[in-house]
Amino acid sequence: MKAICKSTYNEVRNNAQKGSLAALLFLGENVNLNKILIIIFICATILTGYKAYAQDTTSPIPFLITYPYDGTEITSTTFAWSASADDVGITGYELYINGELKASVDSSTLYVTLNESFSDGSYKLYVLTKDYSGNKTKTPEITVYANTIAPAIKIYIDNEEIPAGSSIRRMPLVTVAITDVTGIDKNSIKLAIDDKIVAASIQAQDSSSQHPSDCALSYKIETPLSAGTHTIKVEAADQFGSKNISVLGQLEAKEVVTLSGTPINYPNPFKPKHGQSTKIAYSLSNDASITIYIYDINGQMTKRMALSPGGETSPGTGSGGRQGYNEVIWDGKTDYGNIVGNGAYIYFVVSAEKIVGNGQLAVYD
């Protein structure tokens, strides 16, 4: 239409300037002058607008997202914005979420409701508009959050994730891992032992963030727990107030021993058929009940020696359960009193049903 009007307008104008009657007869013999002038006026108006569009380089005026607010939680799937305007008019609005076009509406509509759900996490939003010349304006980008799940909490005792009812040392190290994709409120984190809140060290993966997605909590129990059962409770909330409480209960505090270094035995190899014995030596962190198990290379238990805290259980075995250095004597005989055959053997030092050390020895007669 623009091309036709432009051609018509130019031809009529040129003929009129020449004083030619063709200007009056251009659209037919029966067309009067008033009709010709009306057509010329319409064409001139369209061409003027066309020239305005072609020459327009001004973008629509700035506008803003009015719902939701930047940094807040998404509570509905409706998004709204203020109106923009332009001297030649705007074509409509487009909503983008994380860079993906989600909806398009006409220039008179200032909101959109999406028929979709949002999983927990952060989302970046902006709205874009453009005029009929193609000039674009978009709102400042905002970040909003979807939040349906409270922070995840994992409790570790001496760097192990253990179930309720487990045995623990009387002075264990308690560590906690807390995660939440929408951000953790560090001020909400509480660690309680037997319902008594303790001052724990909190470290965030992103220390500069007010609401980090990962936090680590650590607390070393310096005063030994009393013998019996204990409960550890951790509480944490995300930045929107969704709270989680994790409880690890029925933990039985026991005096769990540790070894300094690796057990050794000498002589190695030794000759029990010639009356020779070997000594298994190790150092304990504290007095504890110790059991030494000796197995042959086929996995058959050959010898079991039970040692009491602070002293010896069986005559001739030496002390084996006292704090500090210990030597346990093995004469190379089985639990039935038979001398073992030549070969390699493995021994385990066990306390409270936990292997705290092991070694190898050989018999060669």
Results as ranks from 00 to 15, higher is better:
S122K: 07
D365I: 03
S308R: 10
K354S: 10
K18I: 02
D120F: 06
P269V: 06
Q203H: 13
L125I: 07
I292S: 01
D56T: 09
I40W: 00
E222V: 13
K51N: 13
N147G: 06
T113C: 01
G19L: 00
I142A: 13
K273A: 06
Y282F: 14
Q239P: 00
G49Y: 10
S76D: 15
S213H: 15
I329Y: 07
V181I: 11
L37P: 11
I189T: 09
V247D: 03
L37V: 12
A237D: 11
S260Y: 07
P140W: 01
A344P: 05
K271G: 11
T278R: 06
S314H: 11
T109M: 04
T139E: 07
G341M: 06
V363H: 06
N15E: 12
G357Q: 14
G249E: 14
G275M: 11
K303M: 05
S108G: 08
I97D: 12
T45W: 12
A204S: 15
V247E: 05
F63W: 09
G183L: 07
V340L: 04
V356S: 00
I292N: 01
G337A: 00
I90T: 12
T258E: 12
K18H: 12
A253T: 08
V356P: 04
P60V: 07
K333F: 14
V234W: 15
L24R: 08
I329H: 01
G228N: 14
E312T: 10
D56I: 02
S260H: 01
T143C: 09
S76I: 06
L128A: 08
N147S: 15
I184G: 00
G261H: 01
E116Q: 10
L251T: 15
S289W: 13
I162K: 04
D335F: 02
E353G: 01
N265T: 01
G261E: 02
Q210F: 02
V356R: 01
A281F: 13
Y145A: 02
K279A: 14
A199I: 12
Y93Q: 03
D185E: 05
A3S: 11
N326R: 10
